[in-house]
């Protein structure tokens, strides 16, 4: 099953890259800024670019780039708390 674990790791690394590029594109951040994000990097409340309008755009772009549908009921204050929580939220929405 090692191969499977490897492909899971590959796919979550790819999702991580895509999510960083979505944040870059929607919020107008630089690549180096989003490259520096770690799981604890605070998002909502810490990035002035991330207001509730930007959240709407982010959710749609996440849907579009990952080809998933996000039920807004699942989105709460913690989803955008930090980069780690947003990545975990996204990964959990992807088809297994």
């Amino acid at each position: 099953m090692a191969g499977m674990a490897q492909s899971d790791a590959d796919s979550s690394a790819k999702s991580d890259t895509i999510l960083r590029s979505i944040l870059r594109d929607v919020l107008g951040l630089s690549q180096s800024q989003v490259d520096d994000f770690d799981a604890d990097t605070e998002l909502f409340g810490a990035l002035p670019e991330l207001d509730s309008m930007a959240v709407a755009g982010l959710l749609t772009e996440i849907e579009d780039r990952f080809d998933i549908i996000i039920d807004d009921e699942d989105v709460d204050g913690e989803t955008f708390e930090n980069y780690g929580s947003l990545l975990a939220f996204t990964l959990q929405k992807l088809p297994q």
Binding site: S52, A56, G57, L59, T60, D64
Partner: peptide, 15 residues
């Protein structure tokens, strides 16, 4: 999908 974004924006401002 574009309408969904508009609806999300609308919802955010209503909330």
């Amino acid at each position: 999908r574009h309408l969904r974004t508009l609806a999300r924006t609308q919802l955010a401002s209503e909330r």
